[in-house]
Structures are given as structure tokens and as C-alpha cells.
């Protein structure tokens, strides 16, 4: 007999990657859409994204919910995590938070359309907090697994927040561009946000890479996978196209305030789209490569 292998599948596939991406995107879009309400005038340039942002958030939630339900093998039991709520399960928390977040978005829009400032305000603040919990919970979903060395670090929720901020900012930029409202204030703000989120992402990824290079056997396996089958996705699409280039695009106007052309809102939107793409790629690589070291265990 030659080797007999019990072949295994990695449990989480592309549906989860998309879900994580969309939910993070939705969450950060909402935070920015609700920012004028939450933070007041500082965020005034985002005023015009309030409605499209919240509506798009709702649409994204409308995609991600069914996606998640379709991904589970017993879709009809999708309420079980709430019915049998388990405090130690990030996923249980996630389900509850997701529902509440959805409710907050609805409430926000309600308050906006029916001009109920109290509700609007409360929904914005609470909804933003809930929105923040979205990338965090998906990150914890990964980080809670000691079995997956690449994921088992608190950096993952942070990274997911940063990735979501980038992609959310990107989406907001696009919304503004499309609706023709992308003024200099708004684009400066988005540039600033993206500069922070991209820089954070860069540092967190750098830290992760460090742990992999010097890491345990499993981390090294993940590192091999990243540099092997995922190298294009990770280095070119994730790092170069997804972090470095957008970072340059958003930093140039800040560092060189006189470079007029660099301040074009279009460039910010391009940076946002690239950043979102990178955010997707990095998520996918992390989710995939994190599972591979255990494929044959």
C-alpha cells in the first residue's frame, strides 16, 4: 500500500471571504455615512453620503446575510445561533450584532427620512459602534482559533478593521464621485482616513510577515503558501496594488500640498478602489493560507 491519506477540505471557502469583505465594507461605509450625525461638524463633508451610504450599507447587508445563510449547510436553521446563543462563540455574537446593526441602519434611515433627530442620532452612534464590531467580530472569528496559527493573533481583528476602513473609504469616495459631490474637503478627509488605514494595514501585515518568517512550523507553512501559490495575490495585488500604490496616491497631496494634480478626487477614488481590491485580496490570502497548513493534518 502506498500512502493512504484521509483527504480533507479546508472548511471556509470563497463565500466566507466575500462575506467578510462585504460586511466590513458595509460597516465602514455606514460609519462614514453616519459620521456627520455622530461626530457633528468635523464630518460635515460626508453629509451628502448619509443617504446613499446608508442605503448602500443596507443593500450590502441584504447581500451578505443571504450569502452567509447560503453558505451554511442548514439555511433554514439560520436563527439557531441566536436561539441557542453561545457566549463563547464569536459567531453567535456576530449573528446578534449583525441583526442589531441591520436594525440600526434601518433606524438611521427611518430617522433621516421621517426627520426624527433623536432616533437618527441614537441610531448613528449605536450603529457606528455595531458597525465597528463587524470587522472585529469577523477577525475574532479567525483569531479565536488556536488551531490556525496565522489567525491566532489579536492583530487579525485590527487588521480587519483597517482593511474595512480602507474599503469603506474607497466606496464612499466612489459614491461621492458618482453623485458628483466629491469636493476638496471630502477628498481630503478620505485621503487622511485612507492614509491612516493603509499605513496601519501595512504595519500590521509587516508584523504578521515577521511572525511568519520567524514563526512556528505552521506559520512557516502558511508563509510558504503565501509565497507560493498566493504570491501574486499577496505581493502584487495585496501589497503593491492594494497598499503601496494607494498609499502613495493619498500621501503625495499631503506631503506635497502644492502638487495640484495629485489632489484630484478621481485619484482618491482610484486609490480607494485599489485599496478595496487589496483589502479583498489580503483577506482572501489570510483566510485561505491560514487553513492550508492543516489540510493534511
Amino acid at each position: 500500500m502506498f500512502e493512504y491519506m484521509p483527504y480533507n477540505l479546508a472548511p471556509w471557502g470563497v463565500e466566507i471571504v466575500i462575506y467578510f469583505f462585504i460586511i466590513g465594507l458595509a460597516a465602514m461605509t455606514f460609519i462614514m455615512a453616519a459620521a456627520p450625525e455622530t461626530f457633528g461638524n468635523v464630518a460635515a463633508p460626508f453629509r451628502n453620503v448619509e443617504i446613499p451610504g446608508a442605503v448602500i450599507t443596507l443593500i450590502l447587508l441584504g447581500i451578505s446575510g443571504p450569502l452567509l445563510i447560503a453558505d451554511i449547510s442548514q439555511p433554514l436553521r439560520f436563527l439557531n445561533p441566536i436561539i441557542y446563543f453561545r457566549p463563547t462563540s464569536p459567531l453567535s455574537w456576530g449573528s446578534v450584532l449583525l441583526l442589531l446593526f441591520g436594525a440600526a441602519v434601518v433606524a438611521f434611515l427611518y430617522g433621516r427620512f421621517f426627520d426624527k433627530p433623536g432616533i437618527r442620532r441614537a441610531a448613528a452612534v449605536i450603529g457606528s459602534l455595531l458597525a465597528l464590531s463587524m470587522p472585529i467580530y469577523t477577525g475574532i472569528d479567525l483569531a479565536a482559533n488556536q488551531s490556525r496559527a496565522l489567525w491566532a493573533t489579536p492583530a487579525i481583528p485590527l487588521l480587519f478593521v483597517a482593511l474595512s476602513v480602507t474599503s469603506g473609504a474607497g466606496l464612499v469616495a466612489v459614491i461621492q464621485l458618482v453623485t458628483g459631490n466629491f469636493g476638496p474637503d471630502a477628498s481630503r478627509m478620505i485621503r487622511t482616513i485612507m492614509a491612516f488605514s493603509l499605513a496601519t494595514t501595512f504595519l500590521l501585515v509587516f508584523a504578521l510577515v515577521q511572525t511568519m518568517v520567524y514563526g512556528t512550523a505552521e506559520l512557516q507553512q502558511a508563509w510558504d503558501a503565501i509565497n507560493g501559490e498566493f504570491s501574486v495575490q499577496f505581493w502584487w495585488l495585496g501589497i503593491i496594488l492594494g497598499i503601496v500604490i494607494p498609499l502613495i496616491l493619498v500621501l503625495v497631496p499631503i506631503l506635497a500640498p502644492r502638487a495640484e494634480a495629485a489632489r484630484s478626487p478621481l485619484l482618491v477614488a482610484v486609490a480607494g478602489v485599489l485599496g478595496a481590491l487589496g483589502a479583498y485580496m489580503l483577506r482572501e490570502v489570510i483566510i485561505y493560507a491560514g487553513q492550508l497548513p492543516q489540510l493534511f493534518f
Binding site: 471556509w12 451554511i72 449547510s73 436553521r77 472569528d141 482559533n145 493534518f297
Partner: peptide, 13 residues
């Protein structure tokens, strides 16, 4: 529900 979280959590496949 078949979310496969437990599969992710189990270090032993």
C-alpha cells in the same frame, strides 16, 4: 447549522 466553525476550531481535522 453547518457553519463549519467547529471544523475551523479543531486543530486535528
Amino acid at each position: 447549522i453547518g457553519c463549519r466553525t467547529c471544523m475551523i476550531a479543531c486543530p486535528y481535522n
